[in-house]
Amino acid sequence: MLFWDPTFIFLIPAIILAIWAQSLVQQRFYKYSRINSSFGFTGAELARRLLDNAGLFDVKVESIPGKLTDHYDPRTRVVRLSASTFNSHSIAALGVVAHEIGHAIQHKEGYVPLTIRNAFAPVASFGSGFSWIIFLMGLLFWSPVLMKFGIILFLLVVLFTLITLPVEFNASRKASVLLNNMGMPSKEIAAVNQVLNAAAMTYVASVAMALLQLLRMLFIAGLFGDRD
């Protein structure tokens, strides 16, 4: 069972979706990373301008290594921009930056889904790391209790991915509004939306993967949970 698991077939649709979504992100980011915005701002400059306009003077902007590793850290109140966006003038980079500022504004406004996601994050992280280990231990030792505990832990991961969807979609909508208010041409905003919509599909793929993993767990537990 552990070497050949036919329930892997459950994951095929999610795997295909994840590969397609990641490919779409790379394709669109690459396309619009070669086109500079008429703004003339770098990603870091735009981030600072948007934060100041929102009254978030205490939120810092930092550079981190990597590509598309951009994120807002609510614990330290820092917007971290990857090397591919920090000094870039491209439409793609500025769209990503505006999205992360959208998260900072969500934090300021007390956006409920973000608050819930932040509260869920530590538990979901534990569930992601240990749910399958506990579940497989239950399978190995014929313990329905351990299998059920593993399933409950993974259910928290599923809930985390679900609550992430409105957070990300809302941040992208805020990004479009922020850029429009700054005077970005509608043609460039349309390009930004293409990049951010592609990024949103990676979160949809994560939800699909989590749900199908949960279905797989339930199926396996149904097959083996009643054995003595």
Rank of each mutant, 00 (worst) to 15 (best):
F8A: 12
I9C: 04
F10H: 02
L11E: 11
P13A: 05
I15Y: 01
I15A: 11
I16P: 15
I16F: 02
I19Q: 09
L24A: 15
Y30L: 12
Y30I: 12
S33D: 15
S33E: 14
R34P: 10
S37M: 04
S38G: 09
S38K: 07
G40I: 11
G40S: 09
A44Y: 03
E45W: 00
E45A: 05
E45D: 12
L46R: 06
R48K: 12
R49A: 15
L50Y: 03
L51S: 03
A54N: 08
G55V: 08
L56D: 10
V61W: 01
I64H: 03
I64Y: 00
G66D: 10
G66R: 01
G66F: 01
K67R: 13
K67E: 15
K67T: 15
L68S: 03
L68P: 08
V78L: 00
V79E: 02
V79T: 09
F86P: 01
N87Y: 07
S90M: 06
A93M: 07
G95E: 14
G95A: 09
A98T: 15
A98Q: 12
Q106A: 10
Q106M: 12
H107S: 13
H107A: 13
K108R: 15
E109D: 15
G110Q: 13
G110A: 11
V112E: 15
R117E: 14
R117T: 12
N118F: 00
A119N: 10
A119C: 05
A121R: 07
A121W: 01
P122T: 10
V123P: 05
I134M: 03
F135S: 07
L136R: 07
M137R: 05
G138A: 02
F141R: 03
F141Q: 05
W142M: 06
W142Q: 12
M147C: 08
M147N: 11
F149Q: 08
G150P: 13
I151V: 13
I152W: 05
F154Y: 09
F154R: 01
V158L: 03
L159C: 07
F160K: 05
I163C: 08
L165E: 15
P166V: 14
P166T: 14
V167C: 11
E168D: 14
E168V: 11
F169Q: 09
R173L: 10
R173F: 12
L178M: 11
L178R: 01
G183S: 07
G183F: 02
M184H: 02
M184C: 05
P185D: 13
E188P: 00
A190K: 14
A190F: 00
A191T: 03
Q194W: 00
Q194M: 11
Q194I: 15
Q194S: 14
L196W: 09
N197C: 08
A198F: 00
A199L: 09
A200F: 05
M201C: 04
Y203K: 07
A208I: 08
M209H: 07
L212G: 03
L212A: 04
Q213H: 09
L214H: 01
L215D: 06
R216L: 02
M217W: 00
F219Y: 13
A221C: 03
F224N: 14
R227P: 06
